[in-house]
Design a protein around this nucleic acid. Structure first.
Length: 110
DNA sequence: ATTCTGACGTGGG
DNA sequence: CCCCACGCCAGAA
């Protein structure tokens, strides 16, 4: 578990705390963990989160609000479907009102 | 051991 | 405003 380091666990912890109908970015989580330059690792951790159903990877997008990882899901629109299911408006893999649905761990998670 | 790629982000031209 | 390049870390070939 901790063989890969606590980094992955930390990412999961934050991702799990993402409230319903809210999303965050890889960079935000990475920055919160103190690895702002390793935003990529957050995405990598999400990849490993496939074994962690408690990690809503679909609520994590890039800083652009774009569903970059939607191709990694089972279906083609599975990620978008999940987000829309939470009330998030998604168009062409891009989250609308991203500013409103954005969840900042620094601001709300303290 | 080396090389490349990757669910990103920021900066420069 | 749009396009390109660099940085960072980790895992796979």
């Amino acid at each position: 578990m901790e063989t890969s380091g606590n980094f992955f666990e930390k990412v999961y912890e934050v991702a799990k705390q993402i409230p319903f109908g809210r999303v965050t970015s890889y960079g935000a989580i990475a920055k919160y963990l103190g690895a702002a330059k390793s935003a990529r690792m957050v995405g990598w951790a999400m990849n490993a989160s496939h074994n962690n159903p408690d990690v809503p990877a679909h609520r994590v997008v890039n800083r652009n609000g774009l569903l970059t990882g939607k191709f990694h899901f089972d279906g083609t629109n599975l990620m978008q479907q999940l987000l829309e299911n939470e009330g998030i408006v998604v168009r062409e893999n891009q989250i609308q009102n991203f500013n409103q649905v954005f969840w900042d761990p620094f601001k709300e998670l303290v």
